[in-house]
Design a protein around this nucleic acid. Structure first.
Lengths: 196, 196
DNA sequence: GGAAAATAAGAACGGTCGTTCGAAAGTGCA
DNA sequence: TGCACTTTCGAACGACCGTTCTTATTTTCC
């Protein structure tokens, strides 16, 4: 790996954390450069525009989510066990103390949802992929007989994501100790009421 | 009402819309003044600081939510009918075409969750009130016999809010035509699986 | 080791940010 | 009408924004 690539990764790594706390807009090149002991222009030249920096952050965010939440779950047997692994992995992701700013997707969703441009498109793409991956996992749980044959995979994926989102709210803003427990209860109910 | 108060309301009214689209940070005094054909300093003098403007926006947001979602629901009989009215009112709130930027609370939650200062405190307070109001409504549905005696009111309020949050995601970012239908299905399941 | 290429720094740009201040204009009551 | 008070404006502030250049330094490879 060349020096330039290494620096670029170091930049994105830090930018990822800041964006989780302050959002993709609150992430500024000057502040980022100061934290990394780089010059503004030196940092800037790695991306060419702030938008490209934001895109790079979103890209690394989704690949990290995939590798830390989705991929490990594929080691579990398909169907419900795999869905449970995604659920627990997602909890770990959201409570990760190395991500003090919280889940970057929650930030980005709120920030980019009704905007346009590359960052929006990249986020939308990754969220669509996530929904599809979740839906497929649920669909497998149906064909495996863990869920009722007439269960609605997309609906279950939808409600699943709702649980993760409200968990984040209770964790971050309300600082509720029971945030995770309640998420587990909600998940259990989701599974049970769709059981075969 | 004095001239000053009238202007102040006009400012907050517009600020409310902008903050829903661009966030409380993206809401800038210069742009707001231009839109309202006021001078920056003239607008500024109504609040004394940007933070106070943000607080004013959050205040008006929660009072509007109360008056448009919660209060009308209290005309319905207590218990499940009232909860259903809240649910439908909340859907109207989130799909309101006069709020093109979407629900301001979703923006503010992501933006302020791990910050400090008055805006954070005001938001936290209003979200706590909301959770309490929801919980009480559910509790009444339990005592009225609409929900099982051993149902967990706080848990139901938690899951209820999760449905609203994911609905917002599907509406705003994913632009899914079925966003509202799926929310209704999720709500129906929430009610049924806690029925007496 | 030295040339070529990649990477970083420095200074400056036009803009916009929130904020301050003093003067101007408008308002409402005696 | 005159006067106190409220409301608005205009100009300016230092700070920071993203971005553009040119120059210096470092890395890479023959």
């Amino acid at each position: 790996m060349s020096k330039g690539e290494a620096t670029r990764e170091r930049i994105i790594d830090r930018a990822f954390l800041i964006a989780g706390r302050d959002g993709l807009e609150g992430l500024t090149i000057g502040a980022l450069a100061t934290e990394l002991k780089l010059s503004k222009s030196g940092l800037f030249s790695h991306f060419g525009s702030k938008e490209e920096l934001q895109v790079a952050v979103l890209d690394v965010a989704s690949s990290r989510f995939t590798e830390r939440v989705m991929l490990p779950a594929f080691k579990a047997p398909r169907g419900l066990p795999r869905l449970e692994r995604i659920f627990e992995g997602w909890i770990d992701w959201m409570t990760d103390s190395k991500m003090p700013g919280g889940c970057i997707f929650q930030q980005a969703n709120a920030e980019l949802d009704d905007r346009q441009g590359r960052p929006h498109d990249v986020l939308l793409e990754s969220q669509k992929n996530l929904v599809e991956a979740l839906t497929k996992t649920v669909q497998l749980a149906i064909t495996e007989g863990h869920f009722a044959k007439n269960a609605d995979a997309r609906q279950i994926a939808y409600e699943f994501e709702g649980i993760m989102m409200v968990m984040n709210l209770y964790l971050r803003l309300l600082k509720d100790r029971k945030a995770v427990d309640r998420a587990r209860m909600a998940f259990k109910r989701l599974v049970q009421s769709n059981a075969a």
